[in-house]
Nucleic acid binder design. Sequence first.
DNA 1: TCATAATTATTGGTCTACTAACAATTGACG
DNA 2: CGTCAATTGTTAGTAGACCAATAATTATGA
Lengths: 144, 144
Amino acid sequence: MTHQSDHRAYFFKIDTTIKKIRNALQKQLNEAGFDLTVDQWVLTDHIRRQPGVSQNELAELTFKDPPTVTRIVDLLEKKGFVERTAAAGDRRKFNLFLTNKGNELYDKAFPVVAEIRRKGWGDLEETDYQHFVRIMDSIYNNFS
Amino acid sequence: MTHQSDHRAYFFKIDTTIKKIRNALQKQLNEAGFDLTVDQWVLTDHIRRQPGVSQNELAELTFKDPPTVTRIVDLLEKKGFVERTAAAGDRRKFNLFLTNKGNELYDKAFPVVAEIRRKGWGDLEETDYQHFVRIMDSIYNNFS
DNA sequence: TCATAATTATTGGTCTACTAACAATTGACG
DNA sequence: CGTCAATTGTTAGTAGACCAATAATTATGA
């Protein structure tokens, strides 16, 4: 990697790619009539898979900040998809669960999200995925 | 790519990687004492390389929205790094230039940004870069 | 020419990211 | 036990991303 111009490009390329994925997913969610943002979906997905998870755990799992999680959970709660329950044995914590409405939403939205994911990966191969993971992890770890 | 779990991961991995890069770069800019965010740097960089560029051109180059560009340019102008000049022949447009202060900032900040970029790529190879570009472009184009 | 469409930039509103500061609670330790 | 530190979650403020709507200007076409 001797050419400076190539070095400059990798930040830009990752940035534009994630924007494109987000836009495509948001557009699909909107067109399918879901009252849900991409990040709200991400939290919903984690709560579904790990019922009772706390907000701090959610922050670690999603690489979001605790204040960001607070606000997204606020919105999900206001929409009636998620409920905060006092955690047994620690009055600082909440356990998060999907409501019935939240579970219904999840069941309907999941196929839409899965389809977008499949579409984005297209006909890239298993070996591509290995390259992809190795390169992304390498960049990530170079900053850790 | 038969395993669903792998499919789900690529969005997440791109998202966490770009966050990590942004955080590292912002931290370096802060520690070096620059009054500049990452996105403000991105616009500054483009204006330096293409003096007189318009805001809409900047939006296309950076994949940002015109309103976002307006607001970032507002901040750069307020800080005295950028000036808007009425475009000759089209009173709707501005031509953007770096001020002397902006050029001085650029000269000082560039090495810091370049170092972070180099650090992030680490000892990944030229062939890795080719894989990287091919895979990112493929995902991008699958949504276009 | 003149009405209409397109372009350029802006403003307003919502959502997410990040920092800093804070309250409430819990844990650690003398 | 009682003080101090750490943890959990929240609020406030700034910045950026996106959508929708708008004003001003320019381009188009009957």
